[in-house]
C-alpha cells in the first residue's frame, strides 16, 4: 500500500500534532487554574474590564468560520469546487475580522495603560497584573495560531484553485481544517475564562 493513499494514517499524524498543540496551551491553562485559585477576586474584576461585546462577537465569528471550513470540505468532496473556494474565502475573512477586532481590543487596553510591565499594572494589586499578563500571553499565542491557521487556509485555497486538492485528494484541506477547528476549540475555553469570570 502506497502511503500517499493512506488517508487514515495522514489523519492520525495530524491528530497527534493537534495533541501537542492542546498540551502546549494546556501549560498555560495550568497557570490560569492556579492563579485563578490564588486571586479569584482580582480575576473577576479584571474580567469585567474586558470588552464582553467584542469577545462575544469574536466567539461567533470563529464558530461561523469553523462551520464554513467544515462545509468547504463537504463541498470539495461533492466536487463543488467553486462553492468550496467561496466557503474557504469566508473562513479566511472571518479570521481576518477576528484579528482586526483583537487589534482594536488590545489597542484600547494599551491606550488605558494596560500592557505587560506597565506601571499601572505593576503598582496595582498583584492579581490584576497576573490576570492581564495571562490575558496577553494566552490571547497572543492564540492570535499567532489564528495567523498560522489563516496561512494554511490560504494555501488550501490556492491548492484547490490549481486542482491539486480535489474530491479524491483532500488531505491537505482536511488537515488545515482540523487545525482551524483547534484554534476555535482553544477560543471556546478562553472566552468564558477571561471575559465571563464572575
Amino acid at each position: 500500500m502506497k502511503h500517499q493513499d493512506d488517508q487514515t494514517g495522514i489523519r492520525i499524524g495530524m491528530w497527534l500534532f493537534l495533541y501537542t498543540e492542546i498540551i502546549l496551551f494546556g501549560g498555560l491553562f495550568v497557570l490560569y487554574a492556579v492563579y485563578f485559585h490564588d486571586y479569584p477576586k482580582e480575576f473577576a474584576e479584571g474580567g469585567k474590564e474586558l470588552n464582553r461585546i467584542i469577545g462575544s462577537l469574536n466567539t461567533c465569528i470563529l464558530l461561523i468560520s469553523s462551520f464554513t471550513v467544515a462545509a468547504s470540505i463537504t463541498a470539495i468532496r461533492q466536487e463543488c469546487k467553486r462553492l468550496s473556494l467561496a466557503l474557504l474565502a469566508i473562513s479566511f475573512g472571518c479570521g481576518l475580522l477576528f484579528l482586526i477586532n483583537k487589534y482594536f481590543e488590545w489597542g484600547h487596553k494599551f491606550a488605558h495603560g494596560i500592557y505587560p510591565n506597565a506601571p499601572e499594572l505593576i503598582n496595582g494589586p498583584p492579581g490584576r497584573n497576573i490576570f492581564f499578563g495571562l490575558y496577553y500571553v494566552i490571547t497572543g499565542l492564540h492570535g499567532l495560531h489564528v495567523i498560522i491557521g489563516m496561512t494554511l487556509l490560504a494555501i488550501s485555497f490556492v491548492l484547490i484553485w490549481q486542482n491539486s486538492v480535489t474530491g479524491q485528494r483532500y488531505a491537505f484541506l482536511e488537515n488545515s481544517g482540523l487545525y482551524w477547528h483547534l484554534v476555535d476549540l482553544i477560543w471556546i475555553f478562553v472566552f468564558p475564562l477571561f471575559y465571563l469570570v464572575l
Binding site: Y35, I122, P126, G133
Partner: peptide, 21 residues
C-alpha cells in the same frame, strides 16, 4: 522580553509554578 511577571513574586507570580511546568 516583556517582563510580564508570571513567575515573579513581586508582580504576583509564583516561581514554584515554573518548576511544576
Amino acid at each position: 522580553v516583556f517582563q510580564v511577571g508570571l513567575f515573579d513574586p513581586a508582580k504576583g507570580g509564583d516561581p514554584i509554578l515554573y518548576q511544576h511546568l
